[in-house]
Design a protein around this nucleic acid. Structure first.
Lengths: 182, 182
DNA sequence: ACCTTTATTTAGTGATCGTCACAGAAAAGA
DNA sequence: TCTTTTCTGTGACGATCACTAAATAAAGGT
């Protein structure tokens, strides 16, 4: 529900109906809507989202691991029986001050993602695959931007082939991006 | 208000307070919250957003016009006294069924943007700058994805230099993207 | 079988949502 | 000046929001 409607758009009444419980049970188990949301996000990060970032952990070259991450993200934006796009990108964007905590929580998760991309780039520098002196923050920001954009693109109705092509296109500039010019 | 909080997050009470009127005046002038939102979006498209797509209309080469569009978009995501990011990307993403019309309206505007990028690419083919046989839809989807991602990146706190670097990075693969391989 | 503890249901809290009927004020035409 | 028209402010509509106190049912221990 949070994934499809967002934090503010998913009401307690809808949540309890889907969960098959009454609201007092929900509050006894989770404490508040905000806590329930955070647990849902944590579950998402531990399951669906882990596949994408897991591509950064293997024995692939730096370039191939980034490419694989983009490709996996493109696919996971259009899984059957799930809302389009990544939960972390679209789970809480709109809303008044009462949604600030949820928005900040997702923002932190997105920054974790960028940090892990940056860590993979650092490993590439340490392995000698990438030259020293690169501005790794900016390179990581570029790939994070593409990933974020793909979620909106998926919500707008892009098909799997288009998203896969976007992932490939984002890699075409790899050699120039990873040259020492920033 | 819609830009900062989104369609569902901006209440009539907040809107009327900012506008300095009472709700009956708002309904007499615009008819409904949805109509007011559409007028606000139309105003945004005609003013702030026009600067970005205007880069596609000049005498620049296809490559330079796309690069200029990305650069202008990067700057307009972080204007002072305005919410971060593009209104079309973040104005209505969350919410229940009653926000579907607003979401669809913004989605159509985003597709207009992609269509204009595609039209610029077509002009490039007609001018002989780009080879024939390219899958222009996918190329346009790539640049649209980068633009969409930059808005989330801006909301997440990226500074102007980072966004400008992202815009440059997105252009590094231009030659490969515009080769006849799709 | 009895008591204690846990879980679920019913019902309702005040607040806020988008929207509008109605009354009173201001402006315009004669 | 009087009437007609347009506009603005007051107040309230039913619905829904997140959240919870009190009552009822179930489960576990002895």
């Amino acid at each position: 529900m949070f994934w499809a409607r967002g934090y503010a758009g998913a009401s307690i009444a809808e949540l309890t109906e889907v969960m098959g419980i009454n609201s007092p049970s929900l509050y006894a188990a989770f404490g508040s809507k905000e806590e329930l949301f955070k647990e849902a996000v944590a579950l998402y990060v531990a399951t669906d989202d882990s596949c994408t970032l897991q591509m950064l952990e293997g024995d692939l070259t730096t370039r191939d691991s980034i490419a694989a991450m983009l490709a996996v993200n493109a696919r996971s934006c259009l899984l059957p029986d799930r809302p389009s796009g990544c939960f972390l990108m679209i789970g809480a964007t709109n809303g008044g001050p009462e949604t600030d905590a949820a928005q900040q929580y997702l923002c932190d998760k997105r920054k974790d993602m960028a940090a892990r991309i940056r860590a993979r780039l650092e490993r590439g520098v340490a392995d000698g695959e990438l030259p020293a002196g690169l501005n790794l923050d900016r390179i990581a920001a570029y790939f994070a931007t593409v990933i974020k954009g793909m979620s909106i693109e998926a919500r707008d109705g892009a098909d799997a082939e288009t998203l896969a092509a976007v992932a490939r296109s984002a890699m075409f500039g790899w050699d120039a991006i990873t040259s020492t010019q920033g």
